[in-house]
Simulated scan of single mutants.
Amino acid sequence: MRDEWGLDFFYFCLNHLLISAVLLFGNFLVTHFEWVASDSLQAAIQSTPLWLQVVLLILVADFVLYWEHRVFHEVRRLWPFHAVHHSVETMDWLAGSRAHVVQIFIERGLVMLALYLLGASKEALDIYVTFAALQAIIIHSNLNVPWGPIKYLLVTPQFHHWHHSSEKPAIDTNYSAHTVLFDRLFGTYHFPKAHWPAEYGTTQKLPGSYLGQLFYPFRRR
């Protein structure tokens, strides 16, 4: 069993317990932005085939997640919250669970709001949620399998592992959660396919306990 496995398992359990609170926060955002929703746009999207609705959900969510993720990296006051996620030094399926509660609410709340405004059908939303949950586990795993042409379209473990690398060429790259599209469009694509990163984690070591990481972003520097 790797170091800090117990810590990440605690994050895994806690984050699942927080789902109801995150949904309430998402609903709070929706009620304050209902005026933005377009009935005609939502009706048009719901009239499209199910597969196309799912593709639109993936792209819209990926666009929101890309910029939310990039802002947490590049805005100095926000980075300490996201640094908690990057403090993992051994990547596996459980590593993706380590995330600061503040970022969880912001990230998922914004995605929920964007997908609500899009107005896709419940069936499409269910498929997207399943896809996103499975992909989040897979891309943090150490599953070293050939992905073929898929790796040029979707985020795969090797691609996302480079995002977690503490090696300088890879720092602040590969922000996308679902596809590689926006990293390519906005110049943050980094994917040496011949090898995997040698080092993971943050350049400045974080506290090793949950409470230490919870209060880390609020410490004066």
Rank of each mutant, 00 (worst) to 15 (best):
78 L>S: 12
114 A>Y: 03
59 L>A: 00
166 S>K: 14
177 A>C: 07
119 G>T: 10
45 I>Y: 06
30 V>W: 06
85 H>C: 04
118 L>I: 06
194 A>V: 15
135 Q>H: 09
78 L>F: 13
96 G>F: 09
158 Q>R: 15
127 I>N: 09
82 H>P: 09
132 A>I: 01
165 S>L: 08
25 F>T: 02
76 R>G: 09
221 R>G: 08
215 F>C: 03
50 L>P: 05
112 M>A: 10
26 G>P: 02
99 A>C: 12
193 K>N: 10
184 R>Q: 03
187 G>V: 04
128 Y>M: 03
76 R>H: 08
47 S>C: 05
137 I>H: 10
184 R>E: 02
202 T>V: 11
180 V>W: 02
192 P>K: 13
103 Q>R: 13
33 F>Y: 14
25 F>I: 07
83 A>V: 00
44 A>G: 14
174 N>R: 02
68 E>M: 02
183 D>L: 00
110 L>Y: 01
1 M>S: 11
2 R>M: 11
101 V>G: 09
172 D>H: 10
173 T>K: 14
163 H>C: 05
102 V>I: 11
192 P>H: 15
136 A>F: 14
197 P>H: 01
141 S>Y: 02
62 D>F: 03
64 V>Y: 01
186 F>I: 02
89 E>N: 07
147 W>V: 11
122 K>M: 13
87 S>M: 06
86 H>P: 11
59 L>Q: 06
173 T>C: 09
21 A>W: 09
133 A>R: 10
32 H>D: 02
82 H>G: 12
43 A>N: 12
209 S>A: 04
13 C>K: 14
101 V>E: 11
119 G>I: 12
197 P>K: 04
101 V>K: 08
187 G>P: 01
157 P>R: 06
125 L>K: 09
112 M>Q: 11
153 L>P: 05
117 L>I: 07
184 R>T: 03
127 I>K: 08
211 L>R: 00
104 I>M: 13
93 W>P: 01
144 N>T: 11
63 F>N: 05
180 V>M: 03
32 H>T: 08
49 P>S: 05
120 A>M: 10
49 P>N: 10
162 W>T: 08
64 V>D: 04
161 H>V: 07
188 T>A: 08
89 E>T: 13
116 Y>N: 13
11 Y>T: 13
208 G>E: 14
211 L>A: 09
137 I>P: 01
217 P>L: 00
189 Y>S: 01
24 L>D: 09
121 S>K: 00
195 H>Y: 15
62 D>K: 01
209 S>Q: 05
91 M>Y: 02
16 H>D: 11
189 Y>D: 07
125 L>D: 00
139 I>E: 06
32 H>F: 15
202 T>I: 06
83 A>R: 04
200 Y>A: 08
3 D>R: 12
118 L>R: 04
106 I>D: 01
15 N>K: 12
93 W>H: 09
177 A>M: 07
153 L>R: 02
4 E>A: 12
93 W>F: 15
